[in-house]
Nucleic acid binder design. Structure first.
Length: 453
RNA sequence: GUGGUUGUAGCUCAGUCGGUUAGAGCGCUGGAUUGUGGUUCCAGAGGUCGUGGGUUCGACCCCCAUCAUCCACCCCA
């Protein structure tokens, strides 16, 4: 048989030990912050029934779902004519499960399904991979980890503020300079009302979301092509020209939206968040950005997005308030708000900025050189003692050439190598080599212990 | 789904106008140095030039197809 060229599917990756140590550093940091604010972990299955997933992410989102082929003789049960079948129809006949697309929808399902075991407001976090059948590119993978925190069953703006605090703390701990952008879907809805195109709300938000990327000209083109009138577009212009401080923008907005009830409600919400925020004096920037829209249609109130100030890679974190995500599963009038950190993009940013702490990678602190069977037996109890004292240590498993053993220690970044051969065993000492300085000295085991702890 | 980029040694990449035996650096193996890595010196191994077809006396190089890759759009973390 021909040798197969090994490979992983498009958009997926292996992680080496060094990469995993760094990834775990991110996960651990995020978990620690989540826990500090009183959130507890849950997990849900990798796959969900397609009925749960479909229709929650818009038309585009549905296309990006990975579907799982039914088991067994799935074709025998198909009721439609294969020759004339259209892919979409056929898919629903031969596939009833899909890989989760995000963690928010499975969470909504979880809440409704476990109502009896949950006390509201319910605070949970969830760190698991999600899958999207997107074309991979920079900062975009087909399998990636999201770190979600959500609080459901509370309308208070205090929750939004708490999420902002979490964002600030996470990125501070990870040494990433971040800017938090906020907006509110009610404000956007109000704007759509004021310009006289409330039914085109989704098209408008999708178009203006691209403002900073493609410029006002192209956005206007797109709006026109979606059937929005020229006079409406003209009315839109001054709104996105708003500048100055968040307070200034809010004032102008209040004036513009004075005839829209829902718009004013949005302004109020934003203002409440900003007022709380001011009392906190966090050193992370918070900017009211009216062009922030977010495509996910289940958001109804505040929306967030976090970007790196130093690396262009799309958003590192995003989220918002959803008033009725559980409604579709039969639980009405329960509002939630949550955000999701993109661990893989955060990794890419941290890698590029070179801000991973150096010490997290060196796992083994002491290695014994292997000189042979007699020496092995002499070293094993010493290793045992080191480990009991919390010192990561190992012995090279084979008595091969010293050069090879030293190279191993060097490549693994092990700071101390211990040589115990005939001479040392006779004298009852250890020959300890500091791999960084190259210095070498004989010492008793107790001295070594002292030196390392 | 749309448009483009790049596929040559384990890795990163050179390769002239289409011409005889396809190169470099890093890494790997051995030696200088039988108990000393990271520096230095010497030697060696390692190739279906992504795959399939075509043009040509002759193809890594030109043409077609295909697969993979990265990037941009769409959308998103």
């Amino acid at each position: 048989m021909a040798v197969q060229k090994p490979s992983v599917p498009k958009g997926t990756r292996d992680f080496t030990p060094v990469e995993m140590v760094k990834r775990n550093f991110i996960f651990d940091t995020i978990k620690e912050v989540f826990t500090r604010f009183g959130y507890l972990p849950i997990e849900t299955p990798s796959m969900e029934n397609l009925s749960i997933l479909l229709g929650k992410y818009g038309e585009e989102g549905d296309k990006l779902l990975f579907k799982i082929l039914n088991s067994g003789d799935y074709l025998s049960k198909v009721k439609i004519d294969l020759a004339e079948a259209e892919s979409g129809k056929l898919a629903s006949e031969i596939s009833e499960k899909g890989l989760r697309y995000d963690l928010t929808v499975p969470f909504a399902r979880f809440v409704v399904q476990h109502l009896n075991e949950i006390t509201f407001p319910f605070k949970r976090y969830q760190i698991q991979p999600v899958w999207r059948a997107d074309r991979p590119q920079k900062g975009r993978y087909r399998e990636f980890y999201q770190c979600d925190v959500d609080i459901i069953g509370s309308n208070s703006m205090l929750n939004e503020v708490e999420l902002i605090q979490i964002i600030a703390q996470v990125f501070q701990k990870l040494m990433v300079n971040a800017i938090i952008k906020i907006n509110n879907r009610k404000v956007l809805l109000g704007i759509a009302e004021i310009i006289g195109e409330p039914e085109k709300f989704i098209d408008i938000t999708v178009a203006i979301d691209k403002l900073d990327k493609i410029g006002i000209g192209k956005v206007n083109e797109e709006l026109l092509s979606k059937g929005i009138s020229a006079t409406a577009i003209e009315k839109l212009k001054p709104i996105f020209d708003l500048s100055g401080t968040n307070k200034n923008k809010l004032e102008s907005l209040r004036n513009i939206l004075k005839d829209s009830e829902i718009g004013l409600k949005g302004v109020e919400e934003v203002e409440a968040i900003l007022n709380y925020f001011e009392t906190l004096s966090l050193n992370t920037e918070l900017e009211l950005d009216l062009t922030l829209a977010r495509g996910l249609n289940y958001y109804t109130g505040a929306i967030f997005e976090v970007q790196s100030k130093d690396v262009a890679i799309g958003s590192l974190c995003g989220g918002g308030r959803y008033d009725d995500l559980t409604g579709i599963f039969g639980l009405k009038d329960v509002s939630g708000v949550g955000i999701s950190f993109g661990a893989d993009r955060i990794y890419d940013v941290m890698e590029q900025l070179d801000v991973f702490p150096k010490e997290i990678v060196a796992s083994t602190r002491v290695m014994f050189v292997n000189f042979g069977e007699k020496e092995e037996k002499y070293c094993l109890p010493l290793l045992q003692k080191l480990r009991e004292n919390g010192i990561n240590s190992e012995i090279y498993p084979e008595s091969v050439k010293m050069k090879k053993q030293m190279t191993y220690a060097n490549n693994k970044n092990i700071p101390f190598v211990i040589l115990v051969g005939e001479n040392e065993m006779e004298k009852g000492v250890l020959n300890v080599k500091n791999m960084q300085s190259g210095d070498q000295s004989e010492m008793k085991f107790e001295e070594l212990l002292q030196k390392l702890s």
